[in-house]
Simulated scan of single mutants.
Amino acid sequence: MFFEGFSLVTQDVQGVRYRFRSGGTAPDAIFLLHGRPETHVMWHRVGPLLARYYTVICPDLHPERSPEQQVNDLLTLATITGHDKFVIVGQDYGAHLGYLTAATAPDRVQALVLMEALPAATHEGRDDMAFSLAQYNSCWFAQLHPKPESHTIPVPAEWLEKPLPAESVFAPEAVADYLSASIWQHARTVTWAAACHPIRCPVLVLWAASGRIGGWYDPVRRWCDVTSAPTEGHAINGLHFLAEEAPGDVETAISLFLEHCIPE
């Protein structure tokens, strides 16, 4: 069943309509922040697993707003839903937003899980031409017109196949939501700056074993450059969309990590 046990809610937050799913009844809360080009629905497999032990809230982000505005929105949403303290798990864009939230409100964010992301402040300037061209889209942009325009799409190609391939890791309901949602249509171009305050909560870093980030860098070491908090991490089998490629492994990694982070 899709997002079993979760309710779909729309809530006004500082004049902005936030759509999110909520499940679980435990006192400890986890906010799951999605990446690009997905929506909160990317957590439809991981969320119910975590909801056995935590209250899980999965909001759609508002990338047309500045990161600072979104941080304030998330903190307000946490207050509205009755959570003074909470954990954040974020994928790529959501990881950067989670990191900024933890730096902004260190008294509220208990732990941070960062998936498929590198700290932008220290990554800037490290991404040489070889790294950039390793991206599917970029290798086409390196060719003469009209190759870039005719071979680049903003979503994985299989999302556009009708029907979705039987071997796809993506659920049809999820892909339908990704393609119908317009949250990325007016997304702002963001340069993620270094956080103004150090991260004080424990940090878990997860990356795809067959992806680019772990192949080019030591992700844990990179995050250690920008936080003085205990930081650990490991690879998970997958290419990038870990919550859908390996939901059980993701949930296990998060749960084991949080067992030592959140006091009874």
Rank of each mutant, 00 (worst) to 15 (best):
P156D: 13
L112H: 10
V155A: 10
A243H: 07
L160A: 10
H145E: 12
S168Q: 11
W207F: 02
M115G: 09
S228R: 04
A130Q: 05
P106A: 01
P202H: 15
P146Y: 03
R188T: 07
L239D: 10
P198C: 03
I183V: 11
V205F: 02
T227R: 02
A171V: 06
H234M: 05
D128H: 09
T122P: 01
H145V: 04
V175G: 01
P172K: 06
S132A: 12
V226R: 00
P172N: 06
A117I: 07
S210A: 14
R126G: 05
S150K: 01
H186M: 13
D218F: 04
P119L: 12
V113W: 08
S150A: 05
D107G: 08
E124G: 04
R200V: 09
A195K: 14
Y217R: 00
C196H: 15
G215S: 02
R222G: 00
C224P: 00
L206F: 03
L242M: 12
F241E: 13
A111L: 09
P172R: 03
T189Y: 13
T152E: 01
A176M: 02
L114S: 07
P119Q: 13
E158G: 02
H197G: 10
P198E: 09
W207M: 05
D218H: 03
A243W: 01
Q185S: 14
S210P: 00
Y217C: 05
S228K: 03
H234K: 09
S138E: 00
A166Y: 14
R212A: 15
G233P: 00
A134E: 01
D218G: 00
A130S: 07
I183R: 14
T231I: 08
W216K: 03
A195M: 15
E124M: 11
T191H: 15
W216M: 09
L179R: 09
H186C: 12
A166L: 13
W184P: 09
A187W: 02
R212C: 12
P148A: 05
D225M: 06
A229W: 05
S210Q: 11
V109L: 07
Y136N: 10
P163T: 06
F141L: 08
A193F: 12
E161S: 11
C201Y: 08
P146E: 13
G238T: 03
A111M: 10
D128G: 04
W140C: 05
E167W: 12
D107F: 11
F141M: 08
S150Q: 09
L242G: 11
A105K: 11
A194Q: 15
R108K: 14
H197V: 15
Y178W: 09
H186Y: 15
V155G: 02
A181I: 05
P154Y: 02
D107A: 13
E167R: 14
Q135R: 13
I199Q: 12
A209T: 06
